[in-house]
Nucleic acid binder design. Structure first.
Length: 282
DNA sequence: GAGAGTGTTGTAAC
DNA sequence: GGTTACAACACTCT
């Protein structure tokens, strides 16, 4: 689930439904998914919901922050009585009882609404830390790709000493945050740049085009509520996103390239599936 | 049964 | 010290 647009979508939906609510109860079903002192979080109100890269920051009244990372398969699902909130269309496997076998943590608010943290692969986590610690742990993260602090000049400079493939370069959170595998593949296709090119070989003008392309696909992703890739087993706050219908090359091996109509191929790069068009991405 | 999956992090080797 | 490569995390689906 988590690419930046998915996390931002969750953030926006959460903001609408949990700000102002008081946490009455926390059930931890999987110890590995949680860290923090539960009593410090109880009876606190949610002040706001922020995001930094792919980390959600749920701010509480006592200067504590609940940091949430969904990693590969996490979901935050808000349940208000019998209905899930949001806007959009529930998917078929929504008709399930919560907590489910993948529920790792459940928050209950004083008005009896609930927030479930589901995570199939248990890579994700929720941490209750004080604000200072939260900031500290985010220090190494570069600004988001949609942050004006990221400029083509900055990327060009950073890339100048890097021989690593450009795709790995733009997915490096210490360079620029928020570009995951799907959006990296799509941005490179939009910019017509081969994912294999060494980062240092990209001239400034092309870097400008690449940055513009990264922003374009990420912003489209946010607009469409993120992607729900690989069919059904991932949802955005319980609702399917629509970006998957607009993906350019990701998961489209053998299909025609949106630029030139030639066939998209799949390779492995840095251990990750990488889709691109060898005809026009050069 | 093998391999792959939307993400990070730690370690080891250059 | 900077950069790069790769395994590991744990589980489900193809």
């Amino acid at each position: 689930m988590p690419e930046l647009p998915e996390v931002e979508t969750v953030r926006r939906q959460l903001e609408k439904v949990i700000v102002g609510k008081e946490i009455a109860r926390i059930e931890v079903f999987k110890a590995k998914s949680w860290s923090g002192e539960i009593p410090t979080v109880l009876h606190q109100q949610v002040k706001g919901v922020n995001r930094r890269s792919k980390v959600l920051l749920i701010r509480l009244t006592n200067d504590l922050t609940l940091m949430v990372h969904l990693k590969m398969s996490g979901q935050l699902i808000y349940v208000d009585g019998a209905f899930r909130t949001g806007g959009g269309h529930p998917t078929a496997d929504w008709i399930q009882e919560l907590p489910s076998s993948h529920t790792r943590i459940a928050f209950t608010f004083t008005d009896q609404t609930k927030l479930f943290f589901n995570d199939q692969r248990i890579f994700g986590w929720v941490r209750a830390v004080n604000n200072h610690l939260a900031e500290q742990s985010l220090e190494g993260l570069a600004p988001d790709v949609i942050d004006p602090a990221i400029t083509a000049e900055y990327l060009f400079q950073k890339a100048s000493k890097r021989k690593m493939p450009i795709k790995q370069f733009i997915m490096d959170n210490q360079i620029v945050a928020g570009v995951g595998n799907i959006y990296a593949c799509d941005a490179l296709n939009l910019a017509k740049i081969s994912p294999l090119r060494p980062a240092s070989s990209i001239p400034k003008a092309e870097m400008e085009l690449l940055l513009k392309s990264m922003r374009e696909v990420v912003e489209l992703g946010i607009e469409l509520g993120g992607a729900t890739a690989h069919g059904k087993y991932v949802h955005v706050s319980g609702l399917a996103g629509k970006y998957q219908d607009r993906m350019r090359v990701y998961d489209k091996k053998g299909q025609p390239c949106p630029n030139c109509g030639k066939m998209i191929i799949k390779i492995k790069l840095g251990g990750r599936g990488t889709f691109y068009c060898p005809t026009c991405q050069i």
